[in-house]
Nucleic acid binder design. Structure first.
Lengths: 85, 85
DNA sequence: TATACATATGGATAATTATTAATATATATA
DNA sequence: TATATATATTAATAATTATCCATATGTATA
């Protein structure tokens, strides 16, 4: 799939967009992401996997927890633009 | 719906993304857009209506033809970013 | 007014997607 | 090793979406 399409598919769902925006200010543990999205843990886990497959985030296990962070610099720029006036 | 989500929903489909990229260099008649997308006329018409509802394009009838153009400046900026290296 | 042309809409279908409950897996610790 | 905690996966379902064919609508022109 084209890289640009991957980015837009990553961001076109409310749950995923909320996750990505939450990650804008640094990496977060899944246990923090779940309550922030108001979705079940399994839903969040699936959407995180989708974001990772689309090349937008990366995960890293630290002990019992898994941390996700934004890795795509274009996504950061795009989110700045859409949030600007 | 949030404006940012509208923009990403507009761009997350292959047909719509192709249309929007095609409109980057100026307004186009539906009769030019259809062959460019390799979809049927009805499919293109539906996707154009969706783009219009999402606030990304505007249409204007000129005689028998209808012309569509990009109207959202954020979309133009975003497309520049995703196409950059 | 009749016809041709351009675009939109309705209805049907297939495909994709988001969500959840239940369960599995992985890790840490008692 | 047994238990608790954190996350991922499976299976089922509901919802949304993209597509197409057929037809309707709107416009121009003979």
């Amino acid at each position: 799939m084209k890289e640009s399409l991957k980015i837009f598919k990553a961001l076109c769902d409310e749950t995923r967009l909320k996750i990505v925006e939450f990650l804008l200010d640094g990496e977060k543990c899944v246990c923090k992401i779940v309550p922030h999205t108001k979705r079940t843990q399994s839903t969040v886990s699936i959407q995180l996997a989708k974001l990772e497959n689309l090349g937008v985030v990366e995960s890293e296990r630290q002990g019992k927890s898994v941390y996700y962070k934004l890795t795509n610099p274009k996504v950061k720029k795009i989110l700045k633009i859409v949030k600007s006036d």
